[in-house]
Structure formats: C-alpha cells, structure tokens
Computed example of a mutant assay.
Amino acid sequence: MTISPDGIIFWQWGAFALNATIVFTWLVMALLTLISWLVTRKISTTTEISRWQNLLEVLVIGIRDQIRDVSRQEPGRYLDFVGSLFLFIAMANLLNVVPRYMAPTGSLSTTTALAICVFVAVPVYGIVYEGPMTYLIHYVRPTWLMLPFNIIGEISRTIALAVRLYGNIMSGTVIVAILLSLTPYFFPVVMELLGLLTGMIQAYIFAILAMVYIASATSAHQRIAKTNNQNQPPADEKGEAHG
C-alpha cells in the first residue's frame, strides 16, 4: 500500500526521478493559475459581476478578515503570502476526490518546503517592519543565554508545522485504504468526504499558524510605535511649550 506520493515514480533518468509529488504539485499550481486567469480576465468593477468573481471576492475578503483578526494589523501586506499558502493546500487536498490522485501534502518533502517558506517569511517580515537590529535583539532577550533556546524554538515550530500537516493528510489516506479493503463500498465514501473536510481544516490551520508566527515577529514594531505616540504630547501642548 502506497501512503505517500513520493513512492510513485512516473519517469526516471539516472538519479533524477519524476514522482507523483512533483507531478501533482505542478498540477495544483497550474490549476490555480488557470482558475485565477479565467476569473480575473473579465473582472468587473460594476455591481454586475459573475458568480466566479463573486466567489473570489468572498474568498479574498474572508482571508483578509482572518488576517486582520489574528494580527490586529492591516492585512494587505500579508495577503499574498498567507493567501497563497491557504489556496495551495486547500486545492491540493480538495483534488483527493479525483481517482488516482494523491495530495502532494501527503509527502513530507512538500510540507517541509511549505514550513521552510514560513520559516523564512517570519524573519523577513520582522526585519522589514522592525529593522534588522530591533528584530534580531529579540533572540537575546532577556539575556544572551536565551539565544540558543530561541533559535531552537524557531526550528522546532517549523518542524511542527511540516509534521502536523503531513501526519494529518497521510493518516487520512491510510484510514481510507484500510476501510476500502474491508468494506469497499460505503465507508470509503464517508471517509473521503471526511478527508475533504479535514483537508480544508488543515489548510486553514496551516495558514493561521503562519500568520500567528508572522504577527508575533512584527508585533513589537507596533508596540514601539504605539508607545512613542503615547509619549508624545498633543499638538496644542507642543505649541504652548514652544511658545
């Protein structure tokens, strides 16, 4: 029983192997690109819009609202990254209804790549909005002795992101395969529907956790700006003091 798309080889030449993980990952990206182009090629700014544009707007607004609720910041700067993570994982998991398809998120290499993207994005966002020194000094607070522990914490949560998504998708595949061998008609259908629900939940959780990590890296910048604003006297007081 094949539980990971890594074990399915479509073509191999020497050390290079084209497995199902690579093929289905490119398939998901191609479908997302095609759907995006079809929906936005005749996008309308009037009140009369197509059903697909309406669905797209609902989806984008929903993602923006979730980002705003989690980060307490304007969602525009995070929408592209977090939205791409959610849409890719969701599409990859939803396609499980297609026969002979295996979600690339059932491969540890795919989930690790996604987690590494988050691992890189967190300090990038933090450095952009706080500055290099202000962000990096967090790793040595309250003392320099915390530096290795903070680094280990960054690495461990990246591993947790990858393993959590991989474990949930892989376990669903195993359960469906076992039930299919025992009762090949009714239970696999139910489990397939449950697997779709689980896949969507996992896409949501992964995107939310990514946003939580990014928000924690930029929250200090917001607190510093707020503190500076509170310490500044009002405009009229400045005028009186100057006079």
Score class of each variant (00 low, 15 high):
S84K: 05
H221M: 11
E130R: 11
P5F: 10
I9Q: 06
L59S: 09
R77P: 01
M146W: 13
T40M: 07
P99A: 13
T227W: 02
L85P: 04
P142R: 13
T198N: 15
A115F: 04
S109C: 04
V98E: 05
K238D: 00
Y101H: 02
L27D: 03
A20D: 01
I169F: 07
I8C: 01
F88H: 01
F24K: 04
A121R: 02
K42N: 15
H221S: 15
N150S: 11
V70S: 08
A115Y: 03
Y166G: 05
A20G: 00
D65R: 09
S181C: 05
T33I: 01
R51C: 00
P142F: 06
L165W: 08
D65Y: 01
Q230K: 10
I169T: 15
A15Y: 08
W37D: 02
T143V: 02
I208W: 06
T173G: 15
D236G: 01
Q202H: 09
L85N: 02
S107V: 05
G172M: 15
E192G: 10
G14N: 11
S84D: 03
E48V: 12
L94V: 10
M91Q: 00
K238E: 05
I3Q: 10
G199W: 08
H242S: 05
Q12G: 07
T173H: 13
L87Q: 00
E74Y: 03
V212S: 11
F86M: 11
G199P: 00
D236R: 11
P99W: 07
E154Q: 10
T111S: 06
V140L: 08
I175N: 01
T143E: 05
L165A: 09
P75R: 03
T21F: 04
M1S: 09
Y101I: 00
I9L: 05
A177Y: 05
L56F: 14
L161F: 14
V39R: 09
L197T: 06
P132V: 11
N93V: 02
G172Q: 15
K226R: 13
G167S: 13
A121W: 05
P148L: 00
K226V: 11
N93H: 00
M200A: 13
L114F: 08
T21A: 11
P104G: 11
M102C: 02
P132G: 05
S36E: 03
I159S: 04
W144L: 14
V120P: 01
N168Y: 12
Q232D: 01
I214R: 08
Y129C: 11
I175Q: 12
P75L: 03
F119E: 00
K42E: 11
T218R: 10
T47V: 06
L136C: 08
N19F: 04
V128T: 10
I61M: 07
L136Y: 03
T143A: 14
G199L: 10
W26Y: 14
I3S: 13
D80Y: 01
S4Y: 04
L95S: 03
I67N: 05
M200I: 15
I208K: 13
C117H: 03
